[in-house]
Protein backbone atom coordinates (compact mmCIF):
# COMPACT_ATOMS: atom_id res chain seq x y z
CA UNK A 1 0.00 0.00 0.00
CA UNK A 2 2.76 2.40 0.91
CA UNK A 3 5.10 1.76 -1.90
CA UNK A 4 6.17 -0.95 -4.20
CA UNK A 5 9.74 -0.01 -3.47
CA UNK A 6 11.97 -3.01 -3.05
CA UNK A 7 15.42 -2.66 -1.62
CA UNK A 8 17.69 -3.40 -4.51
CA UNK A 9 21.14 -1.95 -4.54
CA UNK A 10 21.53 -1.91 -8.28
CA UNK A 11 18.41 -0.01 -9.25
CA UNK A 12 18.07 1.84 -5.96
CA UNK A 13 14.64 0.36 -5.51
CA UNK A 14 13.28 1.67 -8.79
CA UNK A 15 10.36 -0.35 -10.10
CA UNK A 16 10.02 -1.03 -13.80
CA UNK A 17 6.96 1.16 -14.34
CA UNK A 18 8.78 4.30 -13.22
CA UNK A 19 11.29 6.34 -15.16
CA UNK A 20 13.04 7.92 -12.21
CA UNK A 21 13.45 7.69 -8.47
CA UNK A 22 11.76 11.06 -8.10
CA UNK A 23 8.72 9.89 -10.01
CA UNK A 24 8.47 6.82 -7.83
CA UNK A 25 8.89 8.87 -4.68
CA UNK A 26 6.23 11.39 -5.65
CA UNK A 27 3.87 8.58 -6.61
CA UNK A 28 4.35 6.86 -3.26
CA UNK A 29 3.53 10.00 -1.36
CA UNK A 30 0.56 10.92 -3.45
CA UNK A 31 -0.73 7.39 -2.93
CA UNK A 32 -0.23 7.66 0.80
CA UNK A 33 -2.00 11.00 1.02
CA UNK A 34 -4.95 9.67 -0.95
CA UNK A 35 -5.08 6.69 1.36
CA UNK A 36 -5.22 9.07 4.32
CA UNK A 37 -8.06 10.96 2.64
CA UNK A 38 -10.05 7.73 2.54
CA UNK A 39 -9.32 7.30 6.23
CA UNK A 40 -10.58 10.81 6.90
CA UNK A 41 -13.81 9.99 5.10
CA UNK A 42 -14.10 6.77 7.10
CA UNK A 43 -13.78 8.51 10.46
CA UNK A 44 -15.81 11.40 9.04
CA UNK A 45 -18.78 9.08 8.73
CA UNK A 46 -18.39 8.14 12.39
CA UNK A 47 -18.04 11.76 13.48
CA UNK A 48 -21.17 12.69 11.54
CA UNK A 49 -23.06 9.88 13.27
CA UNK A 50 -21.79 11.09 16.61
CA UNK A 51 -22.86 14.67 15.97
CA UNK A 52 -26.35 13.66 14.83
CA UNK A 53 -26.94 11.43 17.84
CA UNK A 54 -25.48 13.94 20.22
CA UNK A 55 -28.08 16.39 18.97
CA UNK A 56 -30.83 13.84 19.54
CA UNK A 57 -29.64 12.59 22.94
CA UNK A 58 -27.80 15.54 24.44
CA UNK A 59 -28.63 14.71 28.05
CA UNK A 60 -27.56 11.10 27.66
CA UNK A 61 -24.33 12.08 25.96
CA UNK A 62 -23.44 14.63 28.63
CA UNK A 63 -24.15 12.07 31.33
CA UNK A 64 -22.12 9.47 29.46
CA UNK A 65 -19.10 11.70 28.97
CA UNK A 66 -19.02 12.37 32.73
CA UNK A 67 -18.38 8.66 33.19
CA UNK A 68 -15.14 8.80 31.22
CA UNK A 69 -11.86 9.21 33.04
CA UNK A 70 -10.58 12.56 31.92
CA UNK A 71 -7.18 12.07 33.53
CA UNK A 72 -6.49 8.86 31.67
CA UNK A 73 -7.74 10.49 28.49
CA UNK A 74 -5.40 13.43 28.93
CA UNK A 75 -2.46 11.14 29.72
CA UNK A 76 -3.16 9.19 26.56
CA UNK A 77 -3.30 12.38 24.54
CA UNK A 78 0.13 13.33 25.82
CA UNK A 79 1.46 9.83 25.13
CA UNK A 80 0.27 9.95 21.55
CA UNK A 81 1.69 13.39 20.92
CA UNK A 82 4.96 12.09 22.29
CA UNK A 83 4.80 9.13 19.92
CA UNK A 84 4.29 11.51 17.01
CA UNK A 85 7.46 13.27 18.06
CA UNK A 86 9.48 10.04 18.19
CA UNK A 87 8.04 9.04 14.83
CA UNK A 88 9.11 12.35 13.32
CA UNK A 89 12.55 11.81 14.78
CA UNK A 90 12.69 8.33 13.27
CA UNK A 91 11.99 9.83 9.85
CA UNK A 92 14.68 12.42 10.42
CA UNK A 93 17.14 9.72 11.49
CA UNK A 94 16.38 7.67 8.40
CA UNK A 95 16.82 10.69 6.14
CA UNK A 96 20.19 11.46 7.69
CA UNK A 97 21.47 7.88 7.48
CA UNK A 98 21.45 7.24 11.24
CA UNK A 99 20.63 3.56 11.29
CA UNK A 100 20.68 2.91 15.04
CA UNK A 101 18.82 6.08 15.87
CA UNK A 102 16.16 5.14 13.32
CA UNK A 103 15.67 1.79 15.01
CA UNK A 104 15.54 3.28 18.50
CA UNK A 105 13.08 6.00 17.59
CA UNK A 106 10.81 3.47 15.91
CA UNK A 107 10.99 1.27 18.99
CA UNK A 108 10.17 4.27 21.18
CA UNK A 109 7.14 4.96 19.01
CA UNK A 110 6.03 1.36 19.39
CA UNK A 111 6.50 1.61 23.14
CA UNK A 112 4.38 4.76 23.41
CA UNK A 113 1.73 3.21 21.21
CA UNK A 114 1.72 0.24 23.55
CA UNK A 115 1.32 2.51 26.57
CA UNK A 116 -1.66 4.16 24.89
CA UNK A 117 -3.30 0.80 24.26
CA UNK A 118 -2.55 -0.31 27.83
CA UNK A 119 -4.28 2.74 29.24
CA UNK A 120 -7.18 2.08 26.90
CA UNK A 121 -7.47 -1.46 28.27
CA UNK A 122 -7.64 -0.05 31.80
CA UNK A 123 -10.37 2.37 30.73
CA UNK A 124 -12.37 -0.35 28.99
CA UNK A 125 -12.02 -2.54 32.07
CA UNK A 126 -13.53 0.17 34.25
CA UNK A 127 -16.50 0.41 31.88
CA UNK A 128 -17.10 -3.32 32.26
CA UNK A 129 -17.06 -2.96 36.03
CA UNK A 130 -19.54 -0.11 35.94
CA UNK A 131 -21.90 -1.91 33.54
CA UNK A 132 -21.35 0.73 30.92
CA UNK A 133 -20.59 -1.65 28.07
CA UNK A 134 -23.53 -1.73 25.65
CA UNK A 135 -25.43 -4.97 25.68
CA UNK A 136 -27.62 -6.90 28.10
CA UNK A 137 -25.32 -6.03 31.03
CA UNK A 138 -25.68 -2.30 30.45
CA UNK A 139 -27.17 -0.56 33.41
CA UNK A 140 -27.80 3.15 33.86
CA UNK A 141 -29.07 4.31 37.25
CA UNK A 142 -29.45 8.01 36.42
CA UNK A 143 -32.62 9.79 35.32
CA UNK A 144 -31.55 9.95 31.66
CA UNK A 145 -33.10 7.43 29.33
CA UNK A 146 -30.97 4.30 29.22
CA UNK A 147 -31.00 4.19 25.41
CA UNK A 148 -29.57 7.70 25.22
CA UNK A 149 -26.65 6.95 27.50
CA UNK A 150 -26.13 3.61 25.85
CA UNK A 151 -25.95 5.35 22.48
CA UNK A 152 -23.08 7.42 23.82
CA UNK A 153 -21.24 4.28 24.86
CA UNK A 154 -22.04 2.52 21.58
CA UNK A 155 -20.28 5.30 19.76
CA UNK A 156 -17.55 5.60 22.38
CA UNK A 157 -16.61 1.96 21.94
CA UNK A 158 -16.98 2.02 18.17
CA UNK A 159 -14.89 5.13 17.70
CA UNK A 160 -12.16 4.41 20.21
CA UNK A 161 -12.21 0.75 19.17
CA UNK A 162 -11.68 1.54 15.50
CA UNK A 163 -9.02 4.04 16.47
CA UNK A 164 -7.30 1.40 18.60
CA UNK A 165 -7.49 -1.01 15.68
CA UNK A 166 -5.64 1.54 13.57
CA UNK A 167 -3.06 1.83 16.36
CA UNK A 168 -2.58 -1.93 16.47
CA UNK A 169 -2.13 -2.10 12.70
CA UNK A 170 0.29 0.82 12.97
CA UNK A 171 2.33 -0.93 15.65
CA UNK A 172 2.48 -4.03 13.49
CA UNK A 173 3.77 -2.02 10.55
CA UNK A 174 6.25 -0.21 12.81
CA UNK A 175 7.60 -3.55 14.03
CA UNK A 176 8.34 -4.59 10.45
CA UNK A 177 9.80 -1.17 9.82
CA UNK A 178 12.11 -1.48 12.82
CA UNK A 179 13.30 -4.81 11.55
CA UNK A 180 13.95 -3.40 8.08
CA UNK A 181 15.74 -0.44 9.59
CA UNK A 182 17.87 -2.78 11.67
CA UNK A 183 18.87 -4.59 8.48
CA UNK A 184 19.99 -1.28 7.09
CA UNK A 185 17.48 -1.08 4.28
CA UNK A 186 16.89 2.65 4.60
CA UNK A 187 19.29 5.34 3.61
CA UNK A 188 19.37 8.99 2.74
CA UNK A 189 18.23 8.08 -0.77
CA UNK A 190 15.73 5.37 0.18
CA UNK A 191 13.43 6.21 3.05
CA UNK A 192 10.02 6.52 1.36
CA UNK A 193 8.62 3.71 3.46
CA UNK A 194 9.62 5.34 6.75
CA UNK A 195 8.04 8.61 5.69
CA UNK A 196 4.88 6.90 4.48
CA UNK A 197 4.45 5.02 7.75
CA UNK A 198 5.19 8.27 9.56
CA UNK A 199 2.31 9.97 7.75
CA UNK A 200 0.01 7.15 8.75
CA UNK A 201 1.09 7.34 12.38
CA UNK A 202 0.55 11.11 12.52
CA UNK A 203 -2.88 10.63 11.01
CA UNK A 204 -3.85 8.13 13.70
CA UNK A 205 -2.72 10.67 16.30
CA UNK A 206 -4.78 13.40 14.73
CA UNK A 207 -7.88 11.24 14.86
CA UNK A 208 -7.37 10.93 18.59
CA UNK A 209 -6.91 14.69 18.87
CA UNK A 210 -10.49 14.95 17.59
CA UNK A 211 -11.85 12.02 19.56
CA UNK A 212 -10.59 13.23 22.91
CA UNK A 213 -12.52 16.51 23.14
CA UNK A 214 -15.57 15.05 21.41
CA UNK A 215 -15.92 12.13 23.80
CA UNK A 216 -14.31 13.32 27.03
CA UNK A 217 -14.59 17.10 27.17
CA UNK A 218 -17.70 18.27 25.33
CA UNK A 219 -20.55 19.09 27.68
CA UNK A 220 -18.41 18.67 30.75
CA UNK A 221 -18.31 22.32 31.66
CA UNK A 222 -22.08 22.62 31.34
Amino acid sequence: MISDAKPDRQTWGLDHQFDSVDQQRESSFLGMWIFLVTEIMFFGGLFATYIVYRGQNTDGFVAGSHELDITLGAVNTAVLIGSSLTMALAVWAAQTDRRKATVWFILATILLGGVFLGVKVVEYGAKFEHHLVPGPEFHWPGPEKTESVQMFFNLYFLMTGLHALHMIIGIGILAVLAWLAWRGVFSASNHNLVEGVGLYWHFVDIVWIFLFPLLYLLGRSG
Binding site: T38, M41, G45
Partner: peptide
Protein backbone atom coordinates in the same frame (compact mmCIF):
# COMPACT_ATOMS: atom_id res chain seq x y z
CA UNK B 1 -14.42 5.96 -5.25
CA UNK B 2 -11.84 7.45 -2.93
CA UNK B 3 -14.18 9.86 -1.15
CA UNK B 4 -17.42 7.89 -1.10
CA UNK B 5 -16.52 4.27 -0.49
CA UNK B 6 -15.07 4.78 3.03
CA UNK B 7 -18.42 6.18 4.15
CA UNK B 8 -20.15 3.06 2.88
CA UNK B 9 -17.58 1.02 4.77
CA UNK B 10 -18.31 2.71 8.07
CA UNK B 11 -22.06 2.44 7.43
CA UNK B 12 -21.74 -1.29 6.89
CA UNK B 13 -19.74 -1.57 10.11
CA UNK B 14 -22.50 0.22 12.00
CA UNK B 15 -25.16 -2.07 10.52
CA UNK B 16 -23.09 -5.12 11.39
CA UNK B 17 -22.51 -3.83 14.93
CA UNK B 18 -26.22 -3.35 15.50
CA UNK B 19 -27.14 -6.69 14.00
CA UNK B 20 -24.41 -8.72 15.70
CA UNK B 21 -24.23 -7.08 19.10
CA UNK B 22 -27.83 -5.84 19.38
CA UNK B 23 -26.65 -2.41 20.38
CA UNK B 24 -28.72 0.51 19.24
CA UNK B 25 -27.42 2.39 16.23
Amino acid sequence: QILGTPVLAVTILLVAAERLLHIGI
